[in-house]
Write a protein that binds this DNA or RNA. Structure first.
Length: 449
RNA sequence: CGGAGUAUAGCGCAGCCUGGUAGCGCACCUGCUUCGGGAGCAGGGGGUCGAGUGUUCGAAUCACUCUACUCCGACCA
């Protein structure tokens, strides 16, 4: 992509409405534009990140055996009356009437609708287990939206729903999502810790929140320090096998949100030098809630013995649009964002320092074509601007590698690679640059890992 | 939903107290010179001062009402 033909409005100054660093940087680096309280446009640069995050979520859901579909944003109130949540949900649910004065709502979540899909088709235990998911916009009319897309009213969420014959099998389904989540956040460069959590209005008795530690997080959390560097299950993990050992390992150390905090247990099981009491951002949550929806909504299957039983369900959410500020909170410096390669909007930025200079133009154009041919997603800063501004922009938008081409180096046939994270610089022969970048970038994509 | 604030050019702000020609920096446009860390010079364009009502000869400025947005708290992917 040529910068001159792209739409990337960067701001030199910090908009005054933004309080936390991720919100400031998302506005300054041209990812989002606020449209109303808790409502944002995703500009091209931000949308690219959003789609990369979504893609990782989808790949890991699919790997774990979940099946993707898509449900509408607007739902009929009747469905919610069946579960009893139409009255229970409160003002956070945006209620709408259509032209026939039928009660509708903008979905804050989809348990009712997926249960309706399930009960319309599934009759036999032989069709289980089943896990259906979608990535769709949700609306929750928050009393106080804040921090940009961290707590917006309209947000993109992946929500998966599992259906099983009994509790044991439902817990196995829960474990599959648990492991998928460990891999999902890791692939985005996040350290997300599963913590015992309250179930809230979703209901149920088994739940984990996946938390990224950050000063600006909205949840208070307590955990064992060793939770931070546990090994992530590999890509060839057998999701059809028994995942209990992995989940047991990950839940053996103390980790809980403040709602579930048990001081006595915490102090008894976590040595003093391993105690972490911090704030965190909730980037996902898993629930097992048994027959809470299947019973009232009559989502049943026939067992081998001929008896008809309500299915055991779980739901599993990832706040796709929230993950992005979480990544930025975890990875930035004074100059701007530092994207992990796996979610970076571009993998490299090619900076031409003297547009209009024949030798520089020729070298930059050639490198641009070669990078493209090498399969590297590159932003080519071909704008006729001072070098200082270009460096500042490149740092701000956080592209992982900067390939710098200017007359000074070209005299000796050399170009420079700057690593955004860490700031290391390498000077190398122009012919070696593309291969070097490829070598740096490919292992960090985490798409094969 | 309680408390506190803000609203003046695309962005950041001054002007308001003490009513009288709407201003600064950045950004934008034109030209020239520049070109390795947010360049320089010269010229130029852009505003129903959030909305409404009132007071006044005269309102960005004073009064009242409303709206939007932000922050703190209580609540939540």
């Amino acid at each position: 992509m040529r910068f001159s033909r792209y739409f990337l409005p960067v701001l030199k100054e910090t908009p005054k409405e933004a309080e936390i660093i991720s919100h400031q940087l998302m506005l300054r680096a041209g990812l989002i534009k606020q449209q109303a309280a808790g409502s944002y446009s995703w500009l091209p640069f931000g949308y690219k990140v959003l789609m990369k995050v979504q893609r990782i979520v989808e790949e890991e859901q699919n790997r774990a055996g979940a099946v993707e579909m898509l449900m509408p944003t607007l739902q009929s109130a009747d469905l919610w009356r069946e579960s009893g949540r139409y009255d229970a949900y409160g003002k956070e649910m945006l209620r709408i009437q259509d032209r026939h004065e039928r009660d509708m709502l903008f979905g804050p979540t989809n348990e009712e609708m997926i249960t309706d899909v399930f009960r319309s088709y599934v009759r036999s235990y032989k069709d289980l287990p089943l896990n259906l998911y979608h990535v769709q916009w949700k609306f929750r009319d928050e009393v106080r939206p804040r921090f940009g897309t961290m707590r917006s009213r309209e947000f993109l969420m992946k929500d998966a729903y599992s259906f099983d014959l009994d509790k044991d099998r439902a817990v196995a389904a829960y474990n599959r999502m648990f492991v998928a989540y460990l891999r999902t956040y890791w692939r985005m460069g996040l350290t997300a810790i599963p913590m015992r959590a309250e179930t809230g209005p979703i209901g149920g008795d088994l739940s984990h929140e996946f938390i990224v530690l950050a000063e600006t997080g909205e949840s208070g959390v307590f955990c064992h320090a060793d939770m931070l560097d546990k090994p992530i299950p590999p890509a060839d993990t057998d999701f059809r096998g028994d995942l209990t050992p992995i989940v047991q390992d990950w839940t053996s150390l103390y980790a809980a949100t403040e709602d579930m905090f048990d001081k006595a247990e915490y102090e008894a099981t976590v040595p003093e030098n391993k105690r972490i009491s911090a704030r965190g951002i909730e980037v996902g949550q898993t629930f097992y809630f048994g027959t809470k929806y299947s019973e009232p909504m009559k989502a049943t299957v026939t067992r081998p013995d001929g008896q008809e039983v309500a299915v055991h369900m779980g739901s599993y959410g990832v706040g796709v649009s929230r993950v992005i500020p979480a990544i930025i909170e975890a990875s930035h410096d004074d100059a701007g964002i530092i994207w992990p390669v796996s979610v970076a909007p571009f993998e490299a930025i090619l900076i031409s320092l003297k547009v209009g200079d024949a030798a520089t133009d020729a070298a930059a154009e050639k490198l641009y074509a070669e990078l493209d041919a090498a399969g590297i997603d590159v932003l080519y800063d071909d704008r006729d601007q001072g070098a200082g501004g270009k460096f500042a922009t490149a740092d701000l938008i956080g592209v992982p590698y900067q390939l710098i081409v200017g007359p000074r180096g070209l005299k000796d046939g050399q170009v420079e690679i700057k690593h955004r994270k860490g700031g290391e610089r390498e000077t190398l022969a122009i012919d070696a640059a593309v291969a070097r970048l490829k070598g740096l970038i490919e292992p960090q994509r985490r798409d094969q890992a």
